[in-house]
Write a protein that binds this DNA or RNA. Structure first.
Length: 457
DNA sequence: TTAGGGTTAG
């Protein structure tokens, strides 16, 4: 006979294994349980589905759903919520919307988590108006919003460029008695930092202190990153020291932020020390951590170590991403191995990665630095996607090669396209034209630049 | 079950 207590115990075990990502052990326990007459229930399958969504992928979670149905257990609102959250996390946005529709068709009433996922999905697919409509529906319906609803809304608004609206929502919620948890503060501080509203971010940070909350490691990492991003390295390092003094635990996010900053400052020795501390502290390395390490190896000129690590990662079953390959392409270019970089670009494409503007920018810059400006121009013409880095780099390098007319022509086409270009590159063209005896062309170009500023900036 | 911080190029 199956007793409920046994299934409850089974579920506790499954949950424990799922939390530490030991899904095979969780599956094995289910088989053992069935053998002993303890049958899995909807909670067992939901726990597994959530874990597969989180650690593996939505397809793996669907195979559990299939087994669940075969066992005669119907999915409930939690099942759908997990699948929706998983689909949104893995950017399968239409799948997430389909799941919501399927839920309605099957007569399963969505709860606040379903709506939260739906909003998240709309924001992630760049449809803030649709997300806002869902939010209004929640407010006007009898579904009670939870803090996650507000956080999803504030985060989505920030990520879609509506930081001012996010700040207004935060203020309105506070006025109506909502006491924001630390997560809300972190979301808002991050959004404000990333949109360059550092003053507003500082004010929210001050409010956080006054609210009686303590900033957590995420708050510190966010503000530290913000300093590094705006090249206020010393200020960022002060936060790093404060974190250490106050005894905050460093996770992969905090270490990667600091290592990345040391690498950017050219302080490779300190970056290395940090990396060793991260490894010796037993931090489990994910793909971003590995990318940070590969970047460190490349910047210290140790391409061999970088490629060895790439092999190790691939053999270990972790999938390298576009960042890994772009870092390696840049490393090869910086080491003067243009042939290797081109070869790796082909490898990247063979692996199914889309055309990557950053990787091509590295190659164009590398070619210029190797004196192959004509070839760089050929690559430039062959690529569809170009950004301000592409133009700035090529204009700068054409000036260095004293090809001011070509640089001027390129700068004009960039301005016509409404693309921003580094001021130093603009100045280099103007100065070059003047010094090489073409002041009239320099004046004409200057007025084009002014016009573009009025039109686009 | 859901929301927040980290990796690439001038």
């Amino acid at each position: 006979m199956v007793c409920r207590f046994s299934t409850k115990l089974l579920n506790i075990c499954i949950s424990s294994f799922c939390k530490v990502q030991q899904l095979e052990k969780a599956e094995a326990i289910i088989i053992d349980g069935i053998r002993l007459g303890v049958l899995p229930d909807v909670v067992t399958y939901n726990t597994l589905i959530a874990a597969y969504c989180r650690f593996v992928g939505v397809d793996a979670a669907y195979s559990v759903l299939h087994r669940m149905r075969e066992a005669g257990i119907n999915p409930n609102v939690v099942t759908y919520n997990s699948l929706m959250a998983g689909a949104t996390k893995h950017c399968l946005l239409s799948r997430s919307l389909d799941l919501f529709e399927e839920m309605l068709q099957k007569g399963i009433p969505p709860d606040v988590w379903s709506y939260n996922s739906l909003m998240h999905c709309f924001f992630k697919s760049g449809q803030p108006d649709e997300a806002n409509r869902v939010f209004e529906d929640i407010i006007l319906s009898n579904i009670y919003p939870c803090p996650v609803t507000f956080n999803t809304m504030i985060n989505g608004l920030c990520k879609n460029g509506y930081t001012v609206n996010a700040l207004m929502l935060f203020r309105n919620l506070r006025r109506h008695g909502f006491t924001p948890p630390i997560v809300t503060y972190n979301i808002l501080i991050n959004g404000l930092c990333k949109s360059g509203r550092l003053g507003a971010a500082r004010r929210i940070l001050k409010e956080l202190g006054e609210s009686g909350h303590m900033p957590n490691a995420i708050t510190y990492t966010t503000v530290m990153k913000c300093c590094f991003r705006s090249r206020q390295f010393e200020q960022g390092l002060e936060i790093f020291s404060e974190m250490k003094e106050k005894g905050y635990t460093f996770d992969a996010f905090a270490y990667c932020t600091v290592i990345g900053a040391f690498v950017k400052m050219g302080r490779i020795k300190e970056a290395n020390e940090c990396m060793q501390r991260m490894v010796s502290n037993g931090i489990e390395l994910d793909m971003v951590s590995y990318n940070t390490l590969i970047n460190l190896y490349c910047k210290e000129g140790n391409l061999e170590a970088a490629f060895n690590l790439l092999d190790e990662i691939e053999k270990g079953g972790l999938e390298c991403d576009k960042y890994t390959h772009t870092i390696l392409i840049d490393g090869l270019c910086k080491a003067g191995n243009i042939e290797g970089a081109e070869h790796h670009l082909k490898y990247m494409s063979m692996m199914g990665f889309d055309s990557n503007v950053v990787a091509f920018n590295c190659l164009i810059d590398g070619l210029c630095k190797a004196g192959q400006v004509d070839y760089a121009m050929k690559v430039f013409k062959s690529i569809e996607l170009k950004d301000s880095f592409t133009y700035s780099s090529l204009v700068h390098n054409l000036c260095k090669a004293r090809r001011f007319h070509s640089a001027s022509k390129l700068l004009r086409s960039c301005l016509r396209g409404g693309m921003k270009i580094l001021r130093s590159s603009q100045r280099a063209v103007l100065a070059g034209l003047r010094s090489s005896g073409f002041p009239r062309e320099a004046r004409k170009l200057q007025s084009k630049i002014r016009l573009a500023k009025i039109l686009h900036y």
